[in-house]
Simulated assay, not measured.
Amino acid sequence: MSPELSIVIPVYNEEDVLPLLAARLRPVADTLGTTYEVVTVDDGSSDGSPVVLQRMLRDWPELRIVRLRANAGHQAAISAGLATARGGYVVTLDADLQDPPEVIPEMLAQARLHGADVVYGVRSDRSTDSVFKRLSARAFYRLIRLLSGTGAQVDAGDYRLMSRATVNAINALPEHHRVLRFVVPALGFPSASVTYRRDERAAGKSKYPLAKMIRLSLDSVTGFSTAPLRAATWLGLLGGAAAFLLLAYALIAGATGHTLPGWTSTVVAVAGVGAVQLLCLGILGEYVGRMYAHLQARPTYFVAYDSLTGPVTPADEPLPAESHRA
């Protein structure tokens, strides 16, 4: 029989924080008064995380371990968890305890009370984050909302509760490089939210350095809006207009004998136009790259082991829904 609630937790090199996670999550889950499973997705950890998870499994029958064959990334690991979760409601939660598991009962209550398909966890206090991270995150969310027109919650990450209908809709999407914090709002399903204070990481190191944050930002922008392509078009039109005005100025100056010696203006004009062209080419390349990855139809992850069913061989493993061609 399927449990009413699944809690999906991506895990990558979290051996230090896993015992702390179990100590806080299990009492909360056990007192929910409903059946549940905790689906931990080991995203190719290279530390002792697999060993710690196996130890936890001995004493926690509701725990389930899904192990990926290689590191696929945070968003892909969550997608793998959503594809294997069986619950009528599914909560996605990071292992670092920055998002408190104690909020799950409130999320479940909000979903039942309002009939919401999605309940977002919204960070009302981010004082534990650096000033740069707070400001850049808010600017980023507002930019995505402006460009894509989606109702993405500001200060809401990947901590959310979803109904089975929402999870099924996500699993059916064919796109690669999903950024779920924007995919879910884009579905437009009825939603609610709960607020909480974001804590410091309980142990270990952050798995989202600046380079990964930039990559996530690019995936978000190119995955949910064609506004950058329109901006490139407008830049091209403006550049063409500026070039025409410069040409007219040069002809008039030459005819009246007011030309000035030197290469400064020429160099500046050429460098400026070249920079705009390279920027537009880079934007176009991001979209072409996404199209190329989609046409290749390569799965973003492969499951090696599921404690519920045992080892999974490549021949037996179904392709993830996001790898199918549209």
Rank of each mutant, 00 (worst) to 15 (best):
S136V: 13
V41A: 02
S127T: 09
A116H: 06
K212I: 11
E14Y: 05
D59N: 14
S217E: 11
S49D: 03
D155H: 08
D99R: 12
F182K: 08
L93E: 01
P174W: 10
A156K: 05
T309F: 03
K133I: 09
D117I: 00
R325I: 04
T266G: 14
D94I: 01
A297D: 11
A165F: 13
T226K: 15
L235T: 08
V52W: 01
T266F: 15
F189V: 01
D316I: 06
V167G: 06
V122D: 03
A242K: 08
S191C: 11
S220A: 12
G223W: 15
T92M: 00
R55M: 14
T40A: 13
I104K: 00
Y89I: 03
Y196C: 09
R64M: 07
L235A: 11
L245N: 12
S46Q: 13
R290W: 11
I283C: 13
T128M: 15
L247A: 10
H74Y: 10
R197A: 14
I9C: 02
A169W: 01
T34K: 08
L247W: 07
R142G: 12
A152V: 12
V51E: 12
T300Y: 15
N13E: 06
F244K: 07
R112I: 05
Q98G: 11
L245F: 07
P261C: 13
A241L: 08
Q98D: 09
A275H: 13
A85P: 01
E175N: 14
R112N: 08
G262N: 03
W263R: 14
D158Q: 10
I9S: 01
E37L: 06
G272L: 10
A269H: 09
D96Q: 08
A203C: 04
F140H: 05
P101S: 14
L93Q: 03
A275W: 09
M213Q: 10
M1G: 11
S225V: 03
D43V: 01
V8I: 03
H324N: 05
R134H: 03
M107W: 06
R198I: 15
G254R: 12
P19A: 02
A152T: 15
A22C: 11
T40N: 06
L32K: 05
R138L: 12
D125T: 04
T84L: 07
R290F: 13
D306F: 09
G121E: 03
E175T: 13
V8W: 00
D158E: 08
R112C: 07
Y159T: 05
G87W: 00
V119P: 01
G157Y: 05
G285M: 10
L247G: 11
G87T: 01
H324Q: 02
T35V: 08
T264A: 11
R58M: 10
E102I: 04
P3M: 00
P320I: 03
Y292K: 15
G272T: 14
L237M: 06
Y301F: 13
R142N: 15
Y287M: 09
T226F: 13
R198F: 12
Y120L: 06
G81E: 00
A241T: 05
Y249L: 10
R298D: 12
R69G: 14
P61Q: 02
A85W: 00
G115I: 05
A116Q: 04
V183H: 06
H74D: 04
H176V: 13
R230M: 11
E37S: 11
R126H: 04
P311V: 01
L246G: 14
A95P: 00
P228M: 03
R67N: 08
Y208V: 14
A271C: 11
Y301C: 07
S206L: 11
G289A: 10
T222D: 02
